[in-house]
Amino acid sequence: AEKTGIVNVSSSLNAREGASTSSKVIGSLSGNTKVTIVGEEGAFYKIEYKGSHGYVAKEYIKDIKDE
């Protein structure tokens, strides 16, 4: 099942092309942005936001229960 997560940073969080800190940054998400978690790979979540996919470090995403 898809989960919703909240970007848990004070400034912004980089979204990357792949599940690695050396992957190209494809965008950034500001704190408290809601994202859909579609998968996980190592220390990263694969997320969907406004129709695009990217990878973000798990430690900066807070899971919330689907309402």
Rank of each mutant, 00 (worst) to 15 (best):
A1H: 13
A1T: 13
A1F: 14
E2K: 15
E2T: 15
E2W: 15
T4K: 08
T4R: 09
T4G: 04
T4C: 13
T4A: 06
G5W: 06
G5K: 04
G5R: 04
G5F: 07
G5T: 03
G5S: 04
G5E: 02
I6D: 02
I6K: 05
I6F: 10
I6G: 02
I6C: 13
I6Y: 11
V7W: 04
V7M: 05
V7N: 02
V7T: 06
V7D: 01
V7G: 03
V7I: 10
V7A: 04
N8H: 10
N8S: 11
N8D: 09
V9W: 06
V9S: 12
V9C: 15
V9G: 10
V9A: 09
S10E: 11
S10I: 11
S10K: 13
S10M: 12
S10Q: 11
S11H: 13
S11D: 12
S11W: 09
S11G: 15
S11E: 10
S12E: 09
S12P: 08
S12V: 11
S12Y: 14
S12G: 12
S12C: 15
L13M: 06
L13F: 04
L13T: 09
L13H: 02
L13K: 02
L13N: 01
L13Q: 02
L13G: 03
L13I: 15
N14Y: 14
N14K: 13
N14T: 12
N14R: 10
A15G: 03
A15N: 02
A15S: 04
A15H: 02
A15V: 15
A15L: 15
R16V: 06
R16F: 15
R16I: 04
E17S: 09
E17R: 06
E17D: 09
G18E: 12
G18D: 09
G18A: 14
G18Q: 13
A19V: 07
A19S: 07
A19F: 05
A19Q: 03
A19R: 05
A19N: 04
A19T: 07
S20M: 06
S20A: 07
S20Q: 05
S20Y: 08
S20I: 06
S20K: 05
T21S: 12
T21M: 15
T21W: 15
T21H: 14
T21G: 08
S22A: 11
S23T: 06
S23I: 03
S23D: 05
K24C: 09
K24R: 13
K24P: 11
K24A: 09
K24V: 07
V25A: 06
V25Q: 03
V25C: 08
I26S: 03
I26R: 02
G27Y: 14
G27M: 15
G27R: 04
G27T: 07
S28Q: 14
S28A: 10
S28P: 07
S28D: 05
L29K: 02
L29R: 01
L29D: 01
L29Y: 03
L29Q: 01
L29M: 05
L29N: 00
S30C: 14
S30W: 11
S30Y: 10
S30Q: 14
S30N: 10
S30F: 12
S30K: 14
S30D: 11
G31I: 10
G31K: 14
G31F: 13
G31Y: 13
G31W: 11
N32G: 15
N32Q: 10
N32F: 12
N32V: 05
N32K: 08
N32T: 06
N32L: 09
T33K: 04
T33A: 08
T33P: 02
T33N: 04
K34R: 13
K34E: 06
K34F: 10
K34P: 06
K34M: 11
K34Q: 08
V35K: 01
V35F: 04
V35T: 00
V35L: 04
V35G: 01
V35Q: 00
V35H: 00
T36G: 03
T36H: 10
T36S: 08
I37Y: 01
I37G: 00
I37W: 01
V38C: 10
V38T: 06
V38D: 01
V38G: 00
V38F: 05
G39E: 04
G39R: 01
G39Y: 04
E40P: 01
E40I: 06
E40A: 05
E40Q: 08
E40H: 05
E40R: 03
E40C: 09
E41P: 00
E41Q: 08
E41M: 08
E41W: 07
E41V: 10
E41A: 07
G42L: 03
A43M: 10
A43K: 11
A43D: 14
A43N: 12
F44I: 01
F44W: 14
F44Q: 01
F44D: 02
Y45N: 01
K46A: 04
K46M: 10
K46H: 04
K46I: 14
I47L: 01
I47M: 01
I47C: 05
I47T: 03
E48H: 10
E48S: 09
Y49F: 13
Y49E: 00
Y49N: 00
Y49T: 00
Y49Q: 00
K50R: 09
K50F: 10
K50C: 13
G51P: 00
G51W: 05
G51T: 05
S52P: 00
S52K: 12
S52N: 07
S52T: 12
S52I: 14
S52F: 13
S52M: 14
S52R: 13
S52A: 12
H53Q: 07
H53W: 15
H53R: 05
H53M: 09
H53N: 05
H53Y: 15
G54K: 03
G54A: 15
G54C: 12
Y55K: 00
Y55P: 00
Y55V: 00
Y55M: 00
Y55D: 00
Y55T: 00
Y55S: 00
V56C: 04
V56P: 00
V56R: 00
A57W: 09
A57I: 10
A57C: 14
A57M: 13
A57K: 10
K58M: 07
K58Y: 03
K58S: 03
K58R: 07
K58I: 05
K58E: 00
K58L: 03
E59C: 13
E59D: 07
E59T: 07
E59H: 08
Y60E: 05
Y60A: 08
Y60T: 04
Y60D: 08
Y60N: 05
Y60W: 08
Y60G: 08
I61P: 00
I61C: 04
I61N: 00
I61H: 04
I61W: 02
I61Y: 01
K62E: 07
K62Y: 09
K62D: 09
K62S: 13
K62H: 08
K62G: 10
K62L: 11
K62M: 11
D63G: 08
D63L: 15
D63H: 09
D63M: 15
I64E: 06
I64S: 05
I64A: 08
I64R: 04
K65R: 12
K65P: 08
K65M: 11
K65V: 12
K65Y: 10
D66P: 11
D66A: 11
D66L: 13
D66R: 09
D66Q: 11
D66Y: 14
D66I: 14
E67G: 12
E67F: 12
E67A: 13
E67N: 12
E67S: 13
